[in-house]
Amino acid sequence: MTEFLQLLVAGVSLGAVYALLALGFVVVFKATGVVNFAHPALLVTGAYATARLTSTYQWNFWLALPVGIGGAILLALGIQRFLVYPMAAQAVTAITIMTLGADLVVRTEVTREMGAVDLLAVIDPWGNHVIRLGGVVLPVTRLVALVAGIVLITAFFVWFKLSTWGIAMRAVAEDPETAALMGIRRSRVAALAWMLAGGLAAVAGLFLIVFPTPGFSSTTYVAAIVAFPAAILGGLDSTGGAIVGGLVVGLSVTLAQGYAHQLNFLGDNFYEVMPYVVMVLVLLVRPAGLFGTRELHRV
């Protein structure tokens, strides 16, 4: 029973990180209609910057973190302003593919910057401390991730529902033409959406390179790819769906790893395809994701 509880806790805390990732992805889609394949690049930039600043240059963590997040936000803004915005008239597929190219370039550059080092540790204040609740061990970093996730997500939803910019973004997502007629600048809203995505990705990235992971490495970006099925299964245009999707993916992957012996008949390392299997199962029942809106088609 302890084992199950332990896996549950680990899964939910991982799910919170994935939820942040998926949320950033969905925000961009809702506001601009673009599927942002450069999301892994945003995650990697933020995580790498923080790791590099704290370990090689020995900055204070609380100084390095905002700079790292800022770097990801700047990158996101750069991509939006110089690459996506000029292509606003093009088909969304083209823009999506272009973000793939941008992702490739950024990730290659970060790998190059890593240099002859295979692992870059982050000097964070929580280290490998844990708290024990009953028989269950929860790393402090994961607790912080949960709390940060809850805070950020709540703040985001409050802002989304109540603030002027949030309403503007929802307006643009719902009916861009009318929103434009009402004086909402699409480019501003788009820029804001991308900046949000950058920030959320960077925060998620931080939690993917602290304990229980030893640091930033060449496989860190792989975790970001999980954001895609998480966002899809929740519904690509639903911010609530993104949270649910992230949690579902985090939980299912952790449980699949923990019960790998029992799941042996599905092949070794089945947990690697778990997000996609869950996603396909959901899509078969609800083709637009759990909370997504079904597309209406104009003749």
């Binding site: 084992e3 680990a10 992971t213 496989t219 975790a223 923990g258 790998a260 012996h261 690697e272």
Partner: peptide, 15 residues
């Protein structure tokens, strides 16, 4: 057994 891109081995250690 773990996959080549695994980064977090919490589940395996738990088991």
């Amino acid at each position: 057994k773990i996959g080549a891109t695994a980064t977090d081995l919490t589940a395996q250690i738990t088991t």
